[in-house]
Amino acid sequence: MKKLIIVLVILAIGGFLGYKYLYQSHRNIEEEKASFELEAISLVKEFSDDMEQASKKYLNKTIIVKGELTEIESNSLMLANATYCTFDTNHNISNANLNSVYSVKGRCIGYDELLEVVKLDQASIVK
């Protein structure tokens, strides 16, 4: 009987910890302080020169990337043909703003070797 109670307690604790791990609160990237601020071209150069080192430095970090707006979609932007930024909601930037310089804050989720772009998610425009 004691063994059964101990096993149930261990399972309950394990289940609780597993639940907390899976359903932890989401980061609010827009309110986080950026770890780095750099140009879109510089960021891509770091990844193309040494992807392993750049990944250790930037991956899953909140960063601000600045560059010329080269592509606009309903919920994403491309800066300097080098950094692809995805927004959780549609942004309100029009095609009239192409070639303007923007700063975007987001979480670095990696480098796409095929397209040679760095990807950010949970992006927001820095005013």
Results as ranks from 00 to 15, higher is better:
I72Y: 07
E68D: 04
K119E: 08
D88F: 11
K66E: 13
V9L: 12
S35T: 05
G110L: 06
Y84M: 09
A123D: 09
Q24P: 01
I125K: 05
E52T: 06
Y84R: 13
V101C: 08
R27P: 02
Y19V: 02
F16D: 02
F36P: 02
G67E: 06
M1V: 02
L11T: 06
V118P: 00
G18D: 00
S74K: 14
C108E: 15
T70Q: 06
E30Y: 05
I13T: 10
G67T: 03
L17D: 01
Y102Q: 07
K33G: 02
I125E: 13
E113F: 10
F87T: 09
G14N: 10
A40P: 02
A82S: 15
I29Y: 11
S25C: 00
E31P: 04
E39F: 07
L43Q: 00
E31A: 15
F47S: 04
E46N: 04
F16H: 11
A34F: 10
E113P: 04
T89L: 08
D121L: 10
K2N: 13
S124H: 04
S103C: 05
I109C: 06
L115C: 01
I63P: 03
C108T: 11
N60Q: 12
G110D: 06
L22C: 02
D121C: 08
D49Y: 09
E37W: 00
F36W: 05
K56D: 15
K66V: 15
S35H: 05
E39D: 09
D112Q: 11
Y84G: 01
E116V: 00
A40I: 01
A82Q: 02
L77N: 09
D112M: 01
K45N: 12
M51V: 15
A96I: 11
Y58V: 11
T70S: 14
M51W: 09
V101A: 10
Q53S: 14
D112R: 03
M1T: 14
Y19C: 00
E113L: 13
I29N: 08
S74A: 14
T86D: 09
Y102A: 04
I10W: 01
E71A: 12
V65Q: 03
Q122H: 14
V126D: 13
C85R: 07
I6L: 13
I10N: 04
M1K: 13
A40Q: 06
K61F: 13
S35E: 09
N92D: 12
E52R: 06
I109V: 15
K56F: 12
M1W: 06
G106A: 03
R107Y: 04
L8E: 01
L11P: 09
A54Q: 07
L22M: 11
A12R: 01
L114A: 06
S55C: 04
I109F: 09
L59E: 10
N90P: 05
V126E: 14
T70E: 07
Q122L: 15
K2G: 13
L43W: 10
I125V: 15
S55H: 07
K105L: 12
L69P: 04
D49T: 14
C108Y: 07
I72P: 00
I72H: 07
M78V: 14
C108K: 01
I13N: 08
E32R: 03
A54N: 05
V44A: 05
V9H: 00
G18Y: 14
K33D: 08
D88P: 05
I13G: 08
A96M: 11
R107L: 14
